[in-house]
Amino acid sequence: MDFGPHAGFIFTSYGLCLFTILALIAWVRIDKAYQERALRELAEQGFSRTRPDDRNR
């Protein structure tokens, strides 16, 4: 398929959009993994939302 003399502008536009969208997806997934790991580590220390009275441990 021939996109003519401006193919470079077209593919650069789509490439940059793809990169930005992939960066957004990576951001939310990495952030989720980080928060879940932090919650897991806190739970291992005995601090979790299911055990409200950690002071009495």
Binding site: Q35, L42, R55
Partner: peptide
């Protein structure tokens, strides 16, 4: 993306609250 980011933010606030509870102990 918005729903995923909102979920992360809720988890972040839970982490913060639990860390403060850990610090208070």
């Amino acid at each position: 993306l918005h729903l995923m980011a909102m979920r992360n933010e809720i988890l972040r606030r839970r982490v913060r609250a639990l860390r403060m509870r850990a610090a208070s102990v």
